[in-house]
């Protein structure tokens, strides 16, 4: 077979180009550490995600390191929005409850197929705060085009994983005492030092608390209804930026409403 000289040159150049491409991609994988979505995660049962995968959430797993557990299903992402702080490293775990979706953060390289039974993982670093759209770019049914979510990268100093809940009575009989049980949950690994402020009527009580990492601290405020007097009294509990509020009614006699006394919010 005689090959024209020009064609030989062309062939060699083409081969060099091909080898060059493979080399740059290998460098991207090995040198820059751009990992591919792979089979490192165990499979899950799409019908039993609560056990296999847990609820959709963000977890703090190390200094500036977070894990986001995302569930895609027709036609939503959960959680929505996903909140993480700036200057963090976030590993996403994404799975599907039904058909094949994608989890694609617009304008970034965060892009993966989401296949029921499989969990996609990828790690991304967020240096700056910003808001991103998340879309599904794999056709998943008639309302595929409505499937979107949000990723909020909030400034580091504004980020926390605090949750506040208050348990209290709606009504109290004049002369009795009632208690407000305040629970402050800290999802971060570091301890949270903060102040719980409780206001009712014109009175304000403050309490310094320290919630250790990944735990919940409870505190109780006791109110004497005699001091408040009969009638409706608005109250608020404040921890940092979080606020819970409600109304306590002091009545002369508690009657059959007794059973409905406990209020669990929501």
């Amino acid at each position: 077979m005689n090959i024209h000289t020009y064609e030989k040159v062309w062939l060699i150049a083409a081969l060099l180009l091909i080898v060059g491409f493979i080399a740059t991609i290998t460098y991207g994988s090995v040198g820059l550490g751009i990992a591919m979505i792979d089979d490192s995660e165990e499979t899950v049962e799409p019908s039993e995600l609560d056990e296999d995968f847990g609820e959709p959430r963000v977890e703090h797993v190390g200094e500036n390191e977070y894990e986001a557990y995302v569930i895609a299903q027709t036609f939503i992402f959960q959680p929505d929005p996903i909140e993480v702080p700036a200057n963090s490293k976030v590993t996403f775990y994404v799975t599907s409850r039904d058909v094949i979706h994608s989890f694609s953060v617009v304008g970034t390289n965060i892009n993966t197929m989401v296949i029921p039974g499989e969990v996609s993982t990828m790690t991304a670093e967020f240096d700056e705060s910003g808001e991103y759209g998340i879309i599904c770019n794999e056709y998943c049914g008639s309302f595929h085009h409505t499937m979107e979510g949000q990723l909020h990268v909030v400034p580091e100093d504004e980020f926390d994983m605090t949750e506040l809940s208050v348990e209290s009575d709606d009504e109290v009989e004049l002369g009795n005492e009632t208690t407000f049980n305040v629970a402050v949950e800290n999802g971060m690994l570091d301890d949270l030092e903060t102040t719980v402020t409780f206001e009712i009527g014109n009175e304000t009580t403050e309490e310094e608390i320290t919630v250790s990492g990944e735990s919940t601290e409870e505190t109780t405020f006791t109110v004497d209804s005699t001091e408040l007097g009969e009638g409706d009294h608005d109250w608020t509990v404040t921890v940092d930026d979080y606020e819970e509020s409600g109304t306590l009614t002091v009545v002369e006699d508690l009657e059959e409403e007794e059973e409905n006394g406990g209020n669990n919010d929501e």
Binding site: A14, L17, D39, T112
Partner: peptide
């Protein structure tokens, strides 16, 4: 390439084969 459940190595093999598939087109 972006499917979970397939090891990176298999994807790498497919990638190199694909690149060599450029040759007949060249």
């Amino acid at each position: 390439y972006l499917d979970p459940g397939i090891a990176e190595g298999f994807k790498f093999i497919a990638m190199t084969n694909t690149m060599f598939l450029l040759l007949p087109s060249f």
